[in-house]
Amino acid sequence: MPSETPQAEVGPTGCPHRSGPHSAKGSLEKGSPEDKEAKEPLWIRPDAPSRCTWQLGRPASESPHHHTAPAKSPKILPDILKKIGDTPMVRINKIGKKFGLKCELLAKCEFFNAGGSVKDRISLRMIEDAERDGTLKPGDTIIEPTSGNTGIGLALAAAVRGYRCIIVMPEKMSSEKVDVLRALGAEIVRTPTNARFDSPESHVGVAWRLKNEIPNSHILDQYRNASNPLAHYDTTADEILQQCDGKLDMLVASVGTGGTITGIARKLKEKCPGCRIIGVDPEGSILAEPEELNQTEQTTYEVEGIGYDFIPTVLDRTVVDKWFKSNDEEAFTFARMLIAQEGLLCGGSAGSTVAVAVKAAQELQEGQRCVVILPDSVRNYMTKFLSDRWMLQKGFLKEEDLTEKKPWWWHLRVQELGLSAPLTVLPTITCGHTIEILREKGFDQAPVVDEAGVILGMVTLGNMLSSLLAGKVQPSDQVGKVIYKQFKQIRLTDTLGRLSHILEMDHFALVV
């Protein structure tokens, strides 16, 4: 994948999101292997301009796509893939009243899908469409860049269908997702969380590099694949309309690839034109409109599966009536509230959605109805927002919020430890010299600072030695090549209790 991002070429006709291997024109390309080798690009942008032909009021008969309808489940399912879809609609009884809503608040519980998330729908649909058009064949390999849930859905379907599955996901995604993927037989590649989507090191860039190296491999490409919004247009939206008897006044959905909100909203605009569509985008993402909503100094966020630093091709923002931004604290607070007060075992993005819903639905009156999409299960986040310690460490809970008995030293300040200034190293000294210094002084790690004293990161003896043994660096290389740029900081005025929580999850903390 090139470091400079080429513009994806656009073909003359058809839909841009065809499933299957992508040609340089962004659509299915038939021909000899030699032709494909000559024409197939190194990668295709996940934010390529959409060429979708959908228009409100256009006859369904003019759609270029294969459409399906929700099917009634048999008493005995032939395999677990038949437990994807037909998820329950559940009334939220307490939270709406707590925040003064007059309307009825309903939750579409997508964590009841077989793999635990709304992404099971698009995973199965992308595979079925690729099999139907002859792209996927027995023994082929599926590769997908994902925040985890699409990966789980694909790995689940691949396990049943017999495909090899490789999932490329950023490091910030939970260990629970990784464990589930491994249990399903998927191979996992992790990428830096802070890598831009168009960087060769991003999950998108690495996935395309693997595709170019592995024979008979395919990126189904949830960011561009029409099967993504079509899955929701054909099934999720129809289920909502049936469950609500066609009567709903507002739908609120958090947005990642945009397939969920695009597919549902398009069908609702056709069948229930008075329904307002509300999009939820986390602070630090750029999906919301108008652009002024996205202006923030924050560039990272903890909530998973929603928000991006690019506009995915499948996201149709014209069908969203209003956007709201959400933050991590309210997302996790509301997710825990949904679990504790409503018994809905949902993930953090569901918290984002409901946090926005109780604001947006203030305009609705008694007798009206708001539906929220709860995308995934708490299963993926047992060591994250479900953990009091994690919430404390991230600053989303305060010590006084917890009532468990603490040891005698818990409320003492870090400054009472009488710490001395640490050994520091410059980023320009060599790895070999740094190892000598650390061994001589008896230290395992040291902060790396520039000549102005600005902290650049941390270097550890173990990481340097393993990097040297693996051949990633040489003793003569500058130590700046092996620094940890993500590390926890703590102030002298913070409590030892807070430091204790940090050290339970990290090997060190830097006192500043």
Rank of each mutant, 00 (worst) to 15 (best):
R266Y: 09
A231Y: 07
G274K: 11
P16G: 10
I264C: 13
S117Q: 05
D234W: 03
E201D: 10
H22Q: 09
K97Q: 12
I127F: 11
L241D: 04
I152N: 05
G57K: 09
T236I: 14
V118S: 07
G139I: 02
K119Q: 05
E29I: 13
E9C: 14
A195C: 13
G31F: 15
M250I: 09
T13N: 11
L268M: 06
K119E: 05
P200K: 08
D179V: 06
P145N: 01
K36D: 03
D234I: 01
L42P: 09
S32C: 02
P2W: 12
P70E: 10
L154S: 00
M169T: 07
L220E: 00
E239F: 04
P33S: 11
K137A: 09
L136D: 00
A8S: 02
A237C: 12
K25C: 15
L251A: 08
G11E: 10
V189G: 08
L154D: 00
A195H: 05
E29V: 13
P2F: 14
L241H: 07
P64M: 11
M173N: 02
E110I: 00
E128A: 01
V10F: 13
R196D: 02
W208H: 10
S227K: 10
P41D: 04
S50M: 05
K172I: 01
E4P: 10
E171A: 07
D198E: 09
G100A: 09
T141K: 09
P88A: 07
T13W: 01
P21W: 13
T13L: 10
T5A: 03
P46L: 02
S227N: 14
I127C: 04
E144N: 05
G274E: 10
T150R: 04
A253C: 12
R276M: 10
R121D: 02
A155L: 06
M169K: 06
A60H: 11
L154Q: 02
G151D: 03
E110K: 04
D129K: 08
I264L: 13
T135L: 12
W208K: 12
T68I: 15
N149C: 00
V252T: 10
L77P: 03
K137C: 02
F112D: 05
S61T: 15
D234P: 01
T262P: 01
I142E: 00
Y223G: 00
Q243E: 07
G151Q: 01
I80V: 12
E40C: 04
L77V: 14
R164A: 06
K25G: 08
R45C: 01
T135D: 03
A237T: 14
A158T: 05
D245P: 09
I76W: 07
A8V: 15
C109H: 02
T68W: 07
E62T: 03
A38W: 03
R51Q: 10
L136C: 08
G11A: 12
P64H: 07
D47M: 04
L42K: 10
G259E: 03
P170R: 02
D234S: 09
H218T: 07
K72W: 03
C275E: 01
V178C: 07
K247S: 01
R132W: 05
N113S: 10
V255A: 06
E213D: 12
N149Q: 02
R91H: 08
S19H: 08
D129W: 14
E131S: 15
P59N: 10
G263L: 00
K137T: 09
I261H: 05
V206F: 08
K137H: 10
C244K: 00
V206M: 14
L101P: 02
R182G: 11
P21C: 11
L101V: 01
L105F: 14
I240M: 06
A159Q: 07
C272Y: 09
E187R: 02
P88T: 07
K83S: 10
K177R: 02
I240H: 00
K247P: 07
Y163S: 00
H22W: 06
P59D: 10
K36N: 15
M169F: 03
C109Q: 06
A60F: 05
C165V: 05
T260H: 14
N93T: 08
D129M: 07
T236W: 01
A38V: 14
